Simulated scan of single mutants.
Amino acid sequence: MTRIGPLDVVDVFVYTVVLGLFVQFFPEVISESFLITLLTAVLLKLVLELVTWVKKSLLARRRARRGVRRGLNLAMLILVLPGSKLLVLELTALVFRGEVQLGGFFLVTGLILVLMLARRGTRRLFRSSPVAADAAPARRAAE
Rank of each mutant, 00 (worst) to 15 (best):
L59W: 11
R97G: 00
G121Y: 01
F106E: 07
A138E: 10
L102G: 00
G71H: 06
F22S: 04
R65G: 05
L89T: 04
L43M: 15
R123F: 02
L50H: 12
L43Q: 11
R97S: 07
D8Q: 13
V17W: 12
L50D: 14
R62P: 00
A64D: 12
L102K: 05
L39Q: 12
V10G: 05
V51L: 14
L39P: 03
K55R: 15
F106D: 09
L46E: 06
G103F: 03
L59V: 08
S84Q: 13
L77G: 14
A133H: 14
D11Y: 00
R3K: 13
P137T: 08
L7Q: 14
F126Q: 01
N73H: 15
L43V: 14
L38D: 02
I112L: 15
T37A: 15
S57H: 12
F96I: 02
V131Y: 13
E99A: 11
A138T: 09
A132Q: 12
F126M: 15
L79H: 08
R66H: 07
I4Y: 02
L44D: 02
K45F: 12
G20C: 07
R63Y: 11
L58E: 08
R62G: 08
V29S: 07
L91Q: 00
V51N: 09
L7G: 04
A118C: 09
R127Q: 10
V29K: 02
G98Y: 10
M76Y: 12
L50M: 13
A64I: 05
L86C: 02
L43T: 13
V80C: 03
A138G: 00
F34P: 00
F22G: 02
S31D: 07
T40A: 12
V51M: 12
Q24G: 04
S128N: 13
L111E: 01
T109F: 09
V42S: 05
P27D: 13
P137I: 07
V54R: 09
V14P: 01
A41H: 04
I4L: 13
R3N: 06
V12A: 15
G20W: 03
L111Q: 05
L113R: 05
V17F: 09
V10I: 15
P137H: 05
P6R: 11
G71A: 09
N73E: 14
E99S: 08
W53E: 09
F96E: 04
E90K: 05
R120H: 03
G121E: 11
F26M: 06
G103I: 03
S129M: 09
V42F: 06
R123P: 02
V95W: 01
R3L: 06
L39T: 04
T40V: 09
T16S: 15
V18K: 03
M116V: 08
T52Y: 07
A64S: 15
A133L: 14
D8L: 05
S128L: 13
V9G: 06
P6V: 13
A60H: 11
A142C: 08
L77C: 07
G98T: 10
V68T: 10
R119Y: 03
A135E: 10
P137G: 07
E28W: 04
L39R: 15
L107E: 14
R3M: 01
T52I: 03
L86H: 01
R66V: 10
E90Y: 12
L7Y: 00
G110F: 08
T37S: 15
L21F: 04
P82E: 06
K55Y: 08
A133D: 12
L46K: 11
E143N: 10
S128K: 15
A142F: 12
T122D: 01
R97C: 03
G67L: 09
